[in-house]
């Protein structure tokens, strides 16, 4: 592991909460407000880490273990994902499967922790989460398989090193389609509009937020930090496909990727400012669309 890998390994852990700040700043700009500081998420994490906790009497150790296991999984996923074309700290053939399944473990424990409270609201959120993610998973894996076909390798690091802006010349449509599919997966998995509204205050309409209603203190800090990391990690996949800038100089590549991440944050902010969330019954259709986009990318590659 060289210095570059180490830098890219640490980047998500340090920068991830800032991405949330960029999204919120963009939304505030569109709403004509000043908005919270970009670093607000860090302040909140700091505050939560220094609070006590309240647990429901219904809960068991499953509820307490959920946030820790979830955070550990997403941290490992962050270590698997490359950044700016630099090989990730952990890279091996077919690591993308482990990558996808780590998110599966995270979802599994989050859902169980939600069910552990015995609250019908949390059950509702949990049931929606599993329904939507069951469709998001094929979209993600088939999209990544299309990239694997394009680059002839199936390790995340090799795949994304094999892409460059030049790829657009001979396989532009493929990248655009996979990018579209990954954008939908990104928005779904991170509970953003149009699938879920992170700002809603009505428990009945929430998905992700309602599952973590009962967590407090350090547990909730783990959950928030895990969510920020997940946003960053899945976002980095997306920008690798859509904007694979390769200058030949690693520092420049990383800087370009950071700019692209910021751009992604602005894009999410714009989407959230311009769109309302979809009705719940329409969400599966959107996800089906993502699966079809991934599959289309594949059809283009087969020809």
């Amino acid at each position: 592991m060289n210095v570059l890998s180490l830098t890219t390994l640490l980047l998500p852990f340090v920068c991830a909460p800032a991405l949330l700040g960029i999204i919120n700043k963009t939304k505030a700009f569109f709403a004509g407000r000043k908005g919270v500081p970009v670093l607000q998420a860090y302040f909140e994490l700091w505050k939560l880490l220094h609070k006590g906790a309240v647990y429901s009497r219904t809960t068991t150790w499953v509820f307490r273990a959920g946030p820790m296991i979830g955070l550990a999984c997403v941290m490992l996923a962050a270590a698997l994902a490359p950044f700016g074309g630099v090989r990730s700290a952990i890279a091996f053939p077919c690591d993308l499967i482990l990558f996808a399944y780590l998110f599966g473990v995270m979802r599994f424990v989050t859902v169980l922790a939600a069910l552990d409270t015995g609250s019908s609201f949390e059950g509702m959120g949990a049931s929606r989460e599993v329904a939507f993610s069951a469709l998001a998973e094929p979209a993600l894996l088939v999209g990544l398989a299309a990239v694997a076909r394009l680059t002839g390798s199936c390790s995340l690091s090799d795949m994304f090193q094999g892409l460059s802006l030049g790829t657009y010349l001979h396989a532009g449509p493929v990248l655009v389609l996979v990018g579209g599919a990954l954008l939908i997966v990104f928005l779904t998995e991170n509970a953003r509009i149009p699938v879920d509204d992170p700002n809603t205050h009505l428990e009945l309409t929430m998905i992700h937020e309602v599952m973590v209603l009962d967590h407090s203190g350090p547990d909730f800090a783990f959950i928030l930090y895990g969510a920020a990391l997940k946003l960053w990690v899945l976002g980095s996949l997306l920008i690798h496909v859509v904007a694979p800038v390769r200058t030949g100089h690693a520092g420049l590549d990383i800087a370009a990727a950071l700019c692209a991440m910021a751009g992604l944050g602005v894009l999410v902010g714009i989407i959230e400012s311009c769109m309302a969330r979809l009705r719940l019954v329409r969400v599966p259709r959107l996800l089906m669309g993502a699966v079809v986009l991934s599959a289309l990318a594949f059809v283009l590659l087969l020809r």
Partner: peptide, 23 residues
């Protein structure tokens, strides 16, 4: 050819959207 391919892609996607839209 790439630009024609992109138009073709737009055609495919619009068709699929047509099938998926409910309004």
């Amino acid at each position: 050819n790439t630009s024609i391919d992109i138009i073709m892609l737009v055609l495919i996607v619009t068709n699929l959207l047509l099938l998926g839209f409910s309004q």
